[in-house]
Design a protein around this nucleic acid. Structure first.
Lengths: 218, 218, 218, 218
DNA sequence: AATGAATGAGAATTCATTCAT
DNA sequence: AATGAATGAATTCTCATTCAT
């Protein structure tokens, strides 16, 4: 892969190529095992150029983490149908999430598996991004509770717990979908299917679900 | 530090000491960054002895992963109230899971964060263990469906998806609980609380929950 | 920083700017640690321009050494009161030496500390310059001896030794004065003071000095 | 050269071998240009062993500087005839200095040329050692002045200046002797000759010397 | 049961230097 | 007169691993 070997590419473009290669390499090898040599070779460029543009392995990883974080948040944000009912907003956001992770499995692996298992600079960065999403979900749950006229039934801590559970469930499903799909089935359908399954689980609950009740996007 | 520096310790004991040190080191540094030097020093023995007993870093990590996997599965299995209703079994298993991860944060970190982000030998091992748990949950859900007289309502794939979602939610909650508790609240109570929160989420669903419905262990 | 960033500067001027930056950088970092990047940045031009004008790091250092050598020799030569008595000539030359090294500490550091500790091309260059000064001093001592009617008392080798001692004493005093003065006392006065101290030491000797004898410029 | 290639040498011995090789290499190449590879090869050992024992290039250089500093101070101290007259003490100390620098030219080069031109950690260390010697000389001059009944004639600052001049003269002569002798003439005689020349210069002064006066050790 | 001595193989990082414009 | 893009060649340092006792 790695960019047609044409020489003299402008810096901004090269930097993106380098980050692309880095995402791929970090996802496959892990932060420590990935070598700057491999990344440079993947871009079709010498190592010093990578250092000239991105300073160090640590900086490169940081830049990658930030870029992928921002992309994920942007994808989810863009997918949410603002103004809709809380459950509908949740469902659309989840659809965006599953679609994005399916389309960018390496970016997702860097965020979810590599960055979190590295020490403080990176784990914290991803944790912050995740906290942002958890907060979004928390707000939606609280909003839904208010809409439903539920007063005080749900303690703040329980809402937070539910949000964490929901986000964790989504992450787990994303992995499962990506693994079981590999790269065959159409992502759009799969993303909506996964989001619906999750809403059925989270919104309706397993108990009611067993009596044939089901949550639907409509 | 760690083990008392008395010499001439029997092999079986030394091996456990080494694995203890390895769990701690791998959890804190990650597989690649952890050094055999640090592990040996933590045990208070020389590196060659670690190699004599555990062969290689890879083997040591594998042994650690297997030991921690087995311990986790054993803890969950032991906690399940066999013969009880499906939801009660689920709840008791989750309680065991939360209690174990809270008591063994390093072991849980090795399994959940480190082993999964390493290449094939280890990721597969953890995946197998996880699959075992997912299958257990899947069976419980299916059993509950049968109990409820739900026929064909739940496709196999959907059940599998729900199980994955539930397991992911549990993992996420485990991290959240361990972080937010640090080492303050009593773990037993925290584990039951987390399990209950998760059952409320998973079994009753967010929708019903908002109208005051709540799942209880009793 | 450094030179105003105006473009299109004539070559001769740019070359001096580059050598100025080089003197400063070599003095502070040493030959090996100084980087062409830093020098170029200090001038406010790109590295290729430095190479275009000065060929290589080695050439640049050589040019700097030669320029600073010549400047030092010129300063001393200009300060010597030709035709005066030998001791008076020596004193005036020393005054010029101390004044120059105080005014050009970076140039002096490059000559005295950096160039001498580098390999053959540069150490030899500085040694040649130093030899020139030693010869000048040697001649002065020989002349003084002749004036004093001292015949054969002083072997050539001893005169050479005395000259080397005197030059070394001057170098040492130059460092001491520059350090202890930092940038406080007026350099002109300091230079004359140092020269007088040294003449007292070298010409009168410590023994006589202790009985109140003292050498004076007049 | 470098130690018979026999394997399994005790650590303490190896460390000395490494420092010997380092002195030689640093003296010839300079701190920056010397490579750990070359040092290791000179010892007949692999690079990792050098790092295992001496930590880093910086630490190795520091260890070398401290060892050579201590050796020089010890040599001078041992050579001083305690209790003798001030000039005699000075002469004997100088003899020790010239003998030591002649016997350990690489050590002297590391101290005088390399360490001083490196940045703060090392330059300061050598400066401290040198200051110790300057103080010793200062005290001798002051003592001589007191012996001579010279009261207040010599200001403290002038004494300090004279001491600096004397030390610088000695350093310069050491270089000159080592260069002009290379490794031919008997060092003991050369050291005494250099010391005597310097005492003639410093103690009697050039002026008196020209009238046939001469300082003698006796 | 245990260790001091030693290394092969790599990894990140830096730097003087050139090419094409 | 001047520069953005690019690299070959080191160099420091680390680590899993073994040997001889």
């Amino acid at each position: 892969m790695g960019a047609a070997k044409g020489k003299r590419v402008p810096r901004a473009v090269r930097e993106q190529q380098m980050m692309d290669a880095a995402v791929r390499t970090f996802a496959r090898r892990g932060y420590r095992s990935a070598s700057m040599d491999e990344i440079a070779e993947l871009v079709g460029v010498s190592k010093p150029l990578v250092y000239l543009y991105l300073n160090s392995k640590e900086d490169l990883f940081g830049a990658v983490v930030r870029r992928e974080s921002a992309a994920l948040v942007a994808a989810v944000t863009a997918a949410v149908e603002k103004g809709a009912a809380a459950d509908r907003q949740l469902w659309s956001g989840l659809t965006g999430f599953f679609a994005h992770t399916a389309e960018h499995p390496d970016g997702w692996a860097v965020l979810h598996q590599q960055a979190r298992s590295q020490g403080e600079p990176f784990a914290a960065e991803v944790a912050a991004m995740r906290a942002e999403i958890v907060r979004f979900v928390t707000d939606l749950i609280a909003a839904a509770a208010k809409e439903a006229g539920c007063a005080g039934e749900l303690a703040d801590r329980e809402v937070a717990g539910l949000a964490h559970a929901l986000v964790g469930a989504a992450e787990s499903l994303a992995d499962w979908v990506n693994v079981s799909v590999a790269d065959g089935i159409s992502p759009p359908g799969a993303a909506r299917e996964a989001a619906t399954t999750l809403m059925n689980f989270a919104w309706s609950g397993l108990g009611p679900r067993m009596h044939g009740e089901r949550w639907t996007p409509a």
